[in-house]
Design a protein around this nucleic acid. Structure first.
Lengths: 292, 292
DNA sequence: TCCTGTCATACCCGGCAGGTATCACCGGGC
DNA sequence: GCCCGGTGATACCTGCCGGGTATGACAGGA
């Protein structure tokens, strides 16, 4: 008895996240008693107590906390397996590897690089079909983990490359994008400190899974909104150099002298063994081969 | 219906590895018909054909091959979750993180480094208890993946760091370990080519999961066997510099002038979030802080 | 041709996942 | 103090489904 069904993991994660059997059961679309029983059974089977039932609700034990993290990773890996298998089955390729790849890209970023990469890849003989999947802010990691994507373009240090294989493609500086009329827009260069705390131009807050970090700046969830807010003189933004591609007339870009360089990577799950993926990576690295 | 039970994954992996329903059923300790039915059900549920039933046996489709790789990763993640949860529960630590860590180390390697690391760690206040788990040749990766270990000492480029977070600890050159009487032992230095193909001293072949790579050399599965075979003048070995610690009188170490440097890393699963682990890593990196 | 080895089908049974009803418990009102 | 609302646990029932046995369909080989 040293195995656990994904059903049990799903149940535990629901309870561990809600910290409430009733709400967890509702979320799972089932009644509360069988859920209670399933968790008890899981605890008995593992020989470990996962939850402390308080008079008013539930709390996680140390072991419960571990299972919350590790179990989530395991469930992600399972759904990833399903998604990738389905994807491979749809194309029904003969050679034993899928001929379709999903590439996760932060929406509206990487314009030129993506265009060049897709063109170069399409020119390769026998190249896999690439589906470009727009992702939210820093969502690429999840997409790789849970199988919605096979490969992603990421911006270090904003994206975390932990747990993935990756290749460097491109290194850029960063620029501040200011309303053209603003006094700071007249400068040749700026420092991070100059733009991080301008009273009349608070930094915008990006949506992340429907929630926003605290702060005074406007709430945004796509780049067009941001562009408009800058044009209206309501905010300022910091972006990699290549963002110059989408500057409006009302925008002025000023290089940031002390901003950390942004490194664009192509990243994929470390255990991937697909020929189609290898082809894309080879194309990408050849395209951006640096003197190093 | 976009989920799969670990039981079904286990079943599929057995069939995919055996390529034979009967043997797979035997391995699983069950009868063949329910196994056949379970796989059919899995294929129906995924909407994908995984196996081609030939007149004589079974072959994998492209999708089947994907599920073989991804499913194995998912199962590993699941058993890792169970193992780590059990481990955390045994200690039953109060703070929400486990106070016991399993460190995978290639058996009989890293003598000095390991000793220093354990001493330094034990000296830290509130440090976690460390269990040192000897691992086979290049087995540390699996142990981290399936939860038998929480953290490992690895030798790049022999171990693959793909999919793990890691920190560099130490870089060494490599030496050839020769029988003292051998003519080559008289040299001040040697090149890789000098020792890779000596007719009377074929390189030993390490056991890897009970099998051995092909070649003329003797089959070994631990370092003492190797040491003895060298002393007897039957083979030669190439090791990192620190292997001098276990040289016998009958051994002579000669630096290899062109061998790639060996970098010792401490590595752990990228998603780890344990305070105990963080403490050990901090100790290790401080101990081996390099000028860089 | 039969025999052998393969996987699939047919059928039955027992266990367990899940539902409903209810209990035990506790904290907070009044 | 009392009751009430809300928590998770228990009791009990039912239907599904996972697993077993027996058998079939089918293809190769002697």
């Amino acid at each position: 008895m040293d195995t656990v069904e994904t059903r049990e993991l799903r149940y535990f994660l629901a309870v561990a996240e809600e910290l409430h059997f009733g709400r967890a059961a509702e979320r799972l679309g089932m009644a509360q008693p069988p859920l209670s029983r399933a968790i008890q059974q899981l605890e008995r089977r593992l020989g470990v107590s996962l939850l402390v039932r308080n008079r008013r609700g539930v709390a996680l034990t140390g072991a419960g906390e571990v299972l919350l993290h590790e179990g989530r990773a395991a469930l992600d890996a399972t759904t990833a397996a399903i998604r990738r298998t389905r994807r491979a089955g749809g194309a029904d390729s003969p050679g034993g590897t899928r001929s379709r790849l999903v590439l996760a890209v932060k929406a509206a970023a990487f314009h030129e690089l993506l265009q060049k990469l897709l063109d170069a890849h399409a020119a390769e003989p026998g190249a896999a079909e690439i589906e470009v999947l727009p992702s939210g802010t820093c969502e690429q990691e999840e997409m790789l983990r849970d199988g919605r994507a096979d490969v992603a373009l990421m911006h270090a240090p904003f994206n975390s490359l932990a747990g993935f294989d990756s290749e460097e493609l491109l290194t850029e500086g960063q620029i501040a994008i200011l309303p053209t009329g603003h006094p700071l827009a007249a400068h040749r260069t700026l420092a991070l400190a100059d733009v991080s705390d301008i009273p009349d131009l608070p930094l915008a807050r990006w949506s992340r899974h429907g929630t926003y970090p605290p702060g005074p700046g406007p709430e945004i969830h796509d780049q067009t909104q941001l562009a408009q807010l800058i044009a209206l003189g309501r905010t300022v933004a910091v972006f990699p150099d290549s963002a110059r591609a989408w500057l409006w007339a009302e925008h002025t870009a000023v290089p940031l002298i002390d901003a950390p360089p942004v490194v664009t990577h192509i990243a994929w799950p470390a255990h991937s063994r697909s020929l189609a993926l290898a082809g894309l990576i080879r194309t990408a690295t050849q395209l951006y081969a640096r003197a190093h």
